[in-house]
Amino acid sequence: MVSVEYLQTKYPGAQAWAFGDSPELANELAELVSKGLKTASCGSLVSYLSENNPPSVGSFHIILDGQQKPVCVIRLISLQLMKFSEVTEDFARKEGEGDLSLAYWQNAHRAFFSREGTFAEDMELVGEEFRLVSLCTPENTL
């Protein structure tokens, strides 16, 4: 297994983090990214603004699983500001979750943002699109 420290040397400035709010969700979403099925994500603008070093276009990110082990490296290719109620079917599909429908996306994210304490139909989101750069598997020499 490749270490976070090694990856941060290879990709200077890369932040290491996991998707979701539980180890199970982190595992599920990291797997979708590693398979190329998840190429987008979003977070509340409130959370984004509270980060010390918010993501920017071109930045590299080390995606961790639920056990905080590196799964892959992604590179952010776009950022967009949108309201929850304005998320499109296309963006929901790029998130790669469930049946890829907007209805699934809305239900899953309504629950997630409610747990976070930020949900509102008109809440602002930061939508991120990314591409998979590298997998962090023993077979992959990076």
Rank of each mutant, 00 (worst) to 15 (best):
G58M: 10
P23S: 06
F19Y: 04
P70D: 03
D21R: 00
I74K: 00
N27V: 06
C72T: 09
P23Q: 04
L37I: 10
G66L: 02
A30F: 03
L45H: 07
A30P: 05
D21G: 09
V71H: 01
Q67Y: 07
L25A: 12
S47L: 14
C42Q: 00
L29S: 08
P70M: 01
S22D: 04
S44P: 08
E28I: 05
L49R: 14
I74G: 05
P55E: 12
S44T: 15
S56F: 12
A40F: 03
L64F: 01
S50Y: 11
V71N: 04
T39F: 05
K38H: 05
A26T: 00
P55A: 14
V73Q: 01
V46I: 14
D21H: 07
N53K: 15
S59G: 11
T39R: 11
G43Y: 03
H61V: 09
P55V: 12
K38N: 02
G20K: 01
L37A: 13
S47H: 13
P70T: 02
L25V: 15
A40D: 07
A18R: 02
Y48M: 06
Y48Q: 00
I63T: 09
G66M: 08
L29R: 06
G20P: 04
E24G: 06
G36R: 10
P23I: 02
S41D: 04
S56H: 13
S41I: 08
N52M: 12
R75Y: 01
G36S: 11
N52S: 13
Y48K: 02
A40V: 03
R75V: 03
V71D: 00
S56W: 11
E28D: 14
L32N: 07
E28G: 09
I63K: 02
S22N: 07
G43A: 13
H61M: 10
E24F: 07
G43N: 10
G66Q: 07
R75W: 00
A30Y: 03
I77E: 07
G66N: 10
S41Y: 06
G36K: 09
L32D: 06
E31M: 11
H61Q: 12
N27L: 09
S34L: 06
K35M: 13
A18P: 03
Q68T: 12
E31W: 10
V46W: 12
E28T: 11
P70K: 01
Y48V: 09
S22G: 03
T39Q: 08
H61I: 02
K69Q: 14
L64D: 02
